[in-house]
């Protein structure tokens, strides 16, 4: 219980900024999760495992001298295929939303074991040229890896939003989420679209993973630490909405950062979960 003394203005501003950066990563992690839950009715816990797997792959490639951003060229298609394959299996067995939660939880355990047996349970830190750079804007330090994450998160969220809103594919997906049978009666090829979407969600997880590798140290068991806060962002943002996770993630990131600055870092988890509980109890309609 350290004192509740208010930190100085510049320190507060710096922590708000770092909250924005970590919030962008929450948003990026949550985007694929939100699309999968909202539009496919599948809750993919393995999303976190895939993000970590991508982060470790990026780490490994970087050790072999591949630039982390360049490694996205290989990682994204590979994870697209992985996600589409997983969805094919789930569709084949007609897994219910609740069972998808359990099934992907099992998958998460498997991926965690694979990561642990290859890269051990120790912390790993990606070493890239990005990590050493930061620049200063209006008296605040902006680290380059976090800045890249923010740009990617905003860019991708806007792109997904535009696709969902303005293209036939987006309309078909939203229609099928409302009523799959009716949508297919109107000529929507839902099984193809669903594979496409599931692949995209996992590809988004891999991008989030690469961003995570840029600015965080990695340990396999850490994937569980992300679940609560990212789910909070997803629910707060509204299921199946492209910009929701980013906005909500930023909100959570900033409130966490302020909580940490004002009290102690160990109180941070309570922010997102309290938010989550409040949404669920007060505005349950938001997430159904």
């Amino acid at each position: 219980m350290s004192g509740f003394a208010l930190p100085s203005a510049s320190l507060l501003a710096q922590s708000v900024l770092s909250g924005v950066f970590v919030g962008a990563l929450y948003g990026l992690m949550g985007l694929g999760l939100s699309l999968s839950w909202g539009l496919l009715r599948l809750i993919n816990l393995a999303h976190f495992a895939f993000a970590f797997l991508a982060a470790y792959l990026c780490y490994q490639l970087a050790r072999w001298g591949v630039d982390p951003l360049l490694s996205l060229l290989g990682i994204v298609p590979a994870f697209f295929a992985l996600g589409a394959g997983l969805h094919w299996v789930m569709a084949r067995f007609k897994v219910t939303p609740f069972n998808s939660l359990l099934l992907t939880f099992g998958l998460m355990g498997i991926v965690e074991s694979i990561i642990q047996s290859i890269w051990t349970a120790d912390f790993r830190q990606l070493e890239s040229t990005y990590a050493q750079h930061k620049f200063k804007v209006a008296g605040l330090f902006v680290p380059v890896p976090e800045f890249i994450t923010l740009l990617l998160a905003v860019g991708i969220s806007l792109a997904v939003w535009a696709v969902l809103r303005f293209t036939d594919l987006g309309r078909a997906l939203r229609g099928a989420a409302e009523d799959a049978a009716i949508a297919s009666a109107f000529g929507v090829n839902q099984s193809r679209n669903a594979l496409l979407l599931a692949g995209t969600c996992t590809a988004l997880a891999s991008i989030a993973g690469v961003c995570m590798a840029l600015s965080f140290t990695l340990a396999p068991s850490q994937m569980y630490a992300w679940i609560g806060v990212v789910f909070a962002a997803v629910m707060l943002g509204g299921l199946g909405r492209a910009l929701g996770p980013l906005v909500a993630g930023t909100l959570i990131g900033v409130s966490e950062a302020i909580t940490m600055a004002v009290t102690a870092p160990s109180w941070a988890p309570i922010v997102s979960f309290t938010l989550l509980i409040m949404i669920l109890v007060l505005r349950p309609g938001r997430v159904t």
């Binding site: 219980m1 160990s266 309570i270 309290t274 989550l276």
Partner: peptide, 25 residues
């Protein structure tokens, strides 16, 4: 009324971490 199924599952998951945070602090 609408906190059923998945929502209840996630809510109770969140409770675990809230209690855990309070206990630690």
């Amino acid at each position: 009324k609408s906190v059923r199924g998945e929502l209840f599952a996630l809510l109770t998951l969140a409770i675990t971490f809230v209690i855990g945070t309070i206990v630690v602090n």
